[in-house]
């Protein structure tokens, strides 16, 4: 795969994304409060940022194995939008899914520490999520099979 931009809502190549799935209205989402969604049967966490961009990462928390990422606190680290895992408070970059701070924990067996991300587009007030996960810049080796 080619190296695509790690800002899923803008730079993803449609060929990589595959089909887009219509999920909800933008106004269904509260700024900085996540929701879970089913995208092709897969659990995804959606976050609306203050600029009305929307990010999608895996709902499964790699450090607990529970499907809870949408219930984490959204914030910034060094200006970069982040979400904190609600279970053990690891901090993840919302754009790339990278785990920025493991706070002394290790992921549960079989899961990568970084989150898988999905491309998101908001068209005419409707949130669309790409059916296939985005591939991040290989800063960390993302094991897609682990999902």
């Amino acid at each position: 795969m080619s190296a695509v931009s790690h800002a899923p809502s803008t730079g993803a190549d449609p060929d990589d994304v595959g089909e887009w799935e219509r999920i909800c209205l933008l106004r269904d989402l509260l700024v900085e409060r996540g929701v879970a969604a089913l995208v092709g049967g897969v659990q995804v966490a959606l976050f609306r940022l203050p600029g009305d961009e929307v990010r999608a990462v895996q709902q499964r928390d790699p450090f607990s194995g529970a499907n809870v990422m949408s219930r984490g606190i959204v914030g910034t680290r060094g200006g970069v939008p982040t979400v904190a895992g609600p279970m053990y408070k690891q901090v993840f970059d919302l754009a790339t899914g990278r785990c920025l701070d493991k706070v002394g924990f290790e992921p549960v067996a079989g899961l990568a520490e970084d989150l898988v991300t999905w491309p998101v587009e908001v068209r005419a007030g409707v949130v669309h999520v790409g059916a296939r996960p985005a591939v991040t810049v290989p800063a960390a080796d993302v094991d897609l099979d682990a999902r």
Partner: peptide, 22 residues
């Protein structure tokens, strides 16, 4: 903080975190 092309990256206090928000 400016990136290599001179664009300023961080200009405000950000949006908090899981420490200060609670």
């Amino acid at each position: 903080v400016a990136d290599t092309e001179g664009a300023v990256l961080v200009r405000d206090a950000g949006r908090g975190c899981d420490i200060c928000k609670p």
